[in-house]
Amino acid sequence: MCLAIPARVVRLLDDDKALIDIGGVHNEISLGLVEDVAVGDYVIVHVGYAIARLDADEADRTLALFAQMVSEHEGSSGEIH
């Protein structure tokens, strides 16, 4: 299902691109669809494009939710549905 983990912008690159970090994995994405993105911001990425910029509070709450889901998943043998 379409879970979307916030990605942190690590570096701004040429051509409206950026390097992002998701859980330690770095990827290059396009910023062509969102405005005013700075290093340290969190974005939602879909098929190589940032489609939304999150405010810090929203990003923190989302990351905490994912951390909670992973922790609960590791504590059980069930699948995340």
Partner: peptide, 11 residues
């Protein structure tokens, strides 16, 4: 409140 945060592609 969690739904649009977790499923933000079609939140």
């Amino acid at each position: 409140q969690a739904l649009p945060l977790l499923f933000s592609i079609c939140g």
